[in-house]
């Protein structure tokens, strides 16, 4: 039973992640927070891969931790998990930056955009999770 759930979660997370990755390209193109250095085609692929990995992790944790998460709404729980994971990575990044400032440096405006994107990731995942649950 859990195998089936995990498989569904992984597929859903990957789909959400790819959609989110492409949405991130559009949002960054509009905001102009970071001028892209690679071509659009290259970024479509790299953002899809990166987004899928993030989506699978958040979807997987949502499936595994559903019983222990505080909210009744799956959308709120997905947003909570997405933001929490982003914050953990961001705090880790700040530590890396303090250890090796030449290799790693953080830019505040990009961090704000990253936070907003993590909320968007949670919303997309939560909404599609609900749709998927209704169909099952």
């Amino acid at each position: 039973m859990q195998y089936v759930d995990l498989g569904k979660n992984v597929i859903l997370g990957a789909i959400v992640g790819v959609l989110w990755g492409w949405a991130a390209i559009a949002i960054n193109a509009v905001s102009g927070v970071f001028p892209f250095e690679e071509s659009l085609l290259y970024n479509m692929i790299s953002f899809a891969v990166g987004g899928a990995v993030f989506g699978i992790v958040i979807s997987g944790f949502l499936g595994l931790l559903q019983r222990w998460l505080p909210f009744k709404s799956v959308v709120l729980n997905a947003v909570l998990l997405s933001v929490a994971l982003w914050l953990i990575l961001r705090i880790g990044g700040a530590m890396l930056s303090s250890v090796e400032p030449e290799r790693y440096h953080l830019i505040t405006i990009q961090s704000i955009q990253g936070f907003v994107l993590s909320v968007i990731m949670g919303c997309i995942l939560g909404i599609l999770w609900k749709v998927n649950a209704k169909r099952a």
Binding site: F34, W86, R90, A94, I107
Partner: peptide, 18 residues
Amino acid sequence: AYGMADAFHDFRHTIGMP
């Protein structure tokens, strides 16, 4: 996320990672 195994350079900047 940490640029480690620079293919995701633009992705990292966009999502606010170091």
